[in-house]
C-alpha cells in the first residue's frame, strides 16, 4: 500500500508539471463559464456540458493514458529492476494519472457553478451526478487505455486501437443500436434497449444523465420506460454497478497483463 502511494505521488508531480492537465482543467472551466454567460440557466448548462463530457472525457482519457504508459516504458523497466511488486507499480501509476485527470474535470467544470451558485441550487443533485459520472468515465477509459498500452507493444498500433475504441463507444455503437431498433421496430424493445445501454459506458452515462434532466420528456414512451427504470433505486444501483464493471474489468485485465508481461 505504501509503495502504491509513493509511486502515485511522484507520478502525480510529473503529470502536474506536464501542464496538460492544467490545460484540460482550464478547458472545462472556460467552456462551463461561457455556457453560463451565454445560456444562463444551470439546467441547460448541465445539458450542454453532458454532451461535451461524453465526447471529450473518453477521448482525453484514452490519449493521456496511452501517452503516459508508452512514454514511461523505459522508466517502468528501471522501476521493475527495483524490489517492488509489479501490481503496486501498476496501481501507483494508475492513481498518479487518474487523480489529476479526474479532478481536473471536476474542478474545471465545477468551479463556475460555485460562483454562479445561487441560481444553481435547484440543480445541485444533477450537477453532482454529472461530475461523478465524468469522474467515473475518466477512470473507465483510463483503465481501457492502460490495458491497451500494456498489451500492445507498438505504440502506433496502440494509439490506433485506442482511437478506434473511442470512436466505437461514442459514435459507432449508437449507429448500430439505431440499425437494430430500425430492424426490430415492430417488437417491444425497451428492456433490450436498457441492456444495450449497459454494454457501453458512454451510453450508460448519457442515459443516466438525460433521465435526470427534463430532456426525458421528449423521448416519448421509451423515455418513460427509461425514466421509470433509471429513476428507481434498483435501476440506479444497477447503473452504478455496471459503471463499476466498466472500470474494474479493464483495470483488472490491464493489471493481469502487466504482471505477466515481458518488458
Amino acid at each position: 500500500m505504501n509503495t502504491i502511494l509513493k509511486i502515485g505521488k511522484h507520478e502525480l508531480y510529473d503529470v502536474f508539471r506536464g501542464k496538460w492537465v492544467i490545460v484540460y482543467t482550464l478547458f472545462f472551466w472556460i467552456i462551463t463559464d461561457s455556457l453560463f454567460r451565454f445560456g444562463g440557466d444551470p439546467g441547460r448548462v448541465i445539458l450542454s456540458l453532458t454532451n461535451l463530457v461524453l465526447i471529450v472525457i473518453p477521448l482525453v482519457s484514452m490519449i493521456f493514458g496511452s501517452l503516459y504508459l508508452y512514454n514511461s516504458r523505459e522508466f517502468i523497466e528501471l522501476l521493475l529492476s527495483q524490489p517492488i511488486d509489479r501490481r503496486y507499480l501498476f496501481m501507483g501509476m494508475f492513481g498518479g494519472i487518474a487523480i489529476p485527470v479526474g479532478f481536473g474535470f471536476v474542478i474545471g467544470a465545477g468551479l463556475p457553478f460555485l460562483y454562479f451558485g445561487g441560481r444553481a441550487a435547484g440543480d445541485l443533485f444533477t450537477l453532482i451526478l454529472l461530475l461523478a459520472a465524468g469522474f467515473l468515465l475518466t477512470l473507465s477509459f483510463l483503465a481501457l487505455s492502460f490495458f491497451i498500452s500494456v498489451r500492445i507493444e507498438d505504440r502506433l498500433k496502440g494509439f490506433g486501437l485506442a482511437f478506434l475504441l473511442w470512436l466505437f463507444f461514442t459514435v459507432i455503437y449508437d449507429g448500430l443500436v439505431l440499425i437494430f431498433v430500425y430492424a426490430f421496430g415492430d417488437y417491444p424493445l425497451e428492456r433490450v434497449m436498457i441492456i444495450l445501454s449497459m454494454l457501453n459506458p458512454v451510453d450508460l452515462v448519457r442515459i443516466a444523465l438525460l433521465m435526470e434532466l427534463d430532456a426525458a420528456v421528449m423521448m416519448g414512451y421509451t423515455g418513460a420506460v427509461f425514466q421509470k427504470f433509471f429513476g428507481s433505486l434498483a435501476g440506479m444501483l444497477i447503473t452504478l454497478g455496471s459503471m463499476m464493471v466498466w472500470i474494474l474489468l479493464p483495470f483488472y485485465l490491464g493489471l493481469r497483463s502487466f504482471v505477466k508481461k515481458d518488458f
Binding site: 511522484h10 510529473d14 528501471l78
Partner: peptide, 17 residues
C-alpha cells in the same frame, strides 16, 4: 532484486521531474 543494481543502456526518467 535487492541484491542487484541495474544500469540500463539508455536512461529514461519522467521528463518533468
Amino acid at each position: 532484486k535487492k541484491m542487484i543494481g541495474y544500469m540500463p543502456q539508455w536512461a529514461h526518467f519522467p521528463e518533468n521531474l
